[in-house]
Amino acid sequence: MKVLVTGSAGFIGFHLVKHLVNRGEEVVGLDNINDYYDVNLKYNRLANTGIHKEDIAYGKEVKSENLPNYKFIKLDLTDQEGLNKLFEKYKFDAVCNLAAQAGVRYSLINPNAYIDSNIKGFLNILECCRHQKVGHLIYASSSSVYGLNEKMPFSVNDNVDHPVSLYAASKKSNELMAHAYSHLFNLPTTALRFFTVYGPWGRPDMALFLFTKAIMDGENINVFNNGNMKRDFTYVDDIIGGISKVFDHSANSNPNWDGQKPDPASSKAPYRIFNIGRGNTVNLLDFVSEIEKNIGILAKKTYLPLQDGDVSETWADVGQLKSELNYEPKVSVAEGVKNFVEWYKEYYAYKELEAFA
């Protein structure tokens, strides 16, 4: 297949590009390399895929030196003209849109970034897919869309009309926009609601990265909601395995969809929503204990109240992804944290540290 992966300098996008190339697809990666977090990490991910910083220029396609059938282009989703040219040139069979302004708390500070990237940018992707008759659009949604929902585990069949952050609202908006295009233009679309993805090359604004850095630097870690937090931590390899299965199963209409009892996760149109997580909820302090075990240092903790825009618990019902696409997450939290800490030490060249009580 000819595949476009947007957000290819990002955490999940970087891993997905390598997976798709290894399974034989022709892949184009796109990213605007913004400075929401350390751009050096983004450039180093790109370098790992054979794309070097000195070769990158806006709008210029760069061929990988070590991954066959991979090219990268620095482009912004709001650049409608640039996107149109790219889609016209490659006639993509499938698109995986992972590019977005991420982060719940940042949406309280810079809301316009979320409208530009997650709404306007996503509209441009939809329009390009529509006009170039792309066979399947897969896109990143988020567990944050569940908002004030307290029914656990979170099910794609439940209502998600009470977001608690603009980020969450933008992701719910993407699902609504995608349904309109699936209905109007018969464009197959699949939303993936990611649940707390972690692993090597992860984002520096996520808990595992923040905790690891602080513990190794001898600084306090911030533990919100006084430690009463639970997350469905999902290792990146399991996420990539799930996305790969979605590539092989385009969204179809649900012949049993009932307008009298509408299922939010499917439609008469070729439209699907899946949760993609591990399907287990882990206490945040237990997660911290795994980090401490692998670093060999006990964390100094600062307990704080729940932050605005955050929720105390997430837990994915992944039953539909399992039953329909045979999705099976395999990596335990213990194994996943170990892999991350080993990567972090190597990437930042930390020496082994002695444990202390």
Rank of each mutant, 00 (worst) to 15 (best):
L4V: 08
D38H: 12
V341K: 06
K2W: 08
V331Q: 04
D232T: 01
K133P: 00
D237F: 11
Q80N: 13
T196D: 14
Y235H: 09
C128G: 05
K2A: 08
K60L: 02
G82K: 15
I109N: 10
V331G: 03
V333L: 09
D35P: 02
D317S: 00
A334I: 09
S312P: 03
K71Q: 10
N84H: 11
C129Q: 03
Y37K: 04
V341F: 07
L4R: 03
A113M: 15
N280R: 14
F11K: 04
D31A: 07
S64M: 01
I240N: 02
G227A: 05
N157W: 12
N110M: 11
A47S: 15
W201F: 05
D31H: 13
I276G: 01
A178W: 00
K213C: 05
N66M: 07
Y37A: 04
A269C: 08
A334C: 11
K2P: 00
D263C: 09
D76P: 02
E354K: 13
Y348R: 04
C129W: 02
V318C: 07
S141A: 13
A47C: 13
F233E: 01
E61Y: 11
P68G: 05
I239A: 07
P204H: 12
S182P: 02
Q260G: 15
A334T: 14
G50N: 06
Y198H: 11
N283E: 04
L176P: 07
V160E: 05
L98P: 00
S142D: 09
H162G: 11
I221S: 00
G10C: 09
I239M: 08
D248H: 15
N174Y: 10
A269Q: 01
K91N: 13
G24T: 05
R231Y: 08
R203I: 13
L298C: 15
L46Q: 02
N225V: 02
K85V: 01
T78F: 11
K213I: 02
L98R: 06
I239T: 12
A100T: 01
S144L: 03
I221D: 03
F233D: 00
N226L: 14
V95Y: 06
K53H: 09
E150P: 01
V39Q: 15
E328M: 10
I138N: 07
V311P: 15
V223H: 06
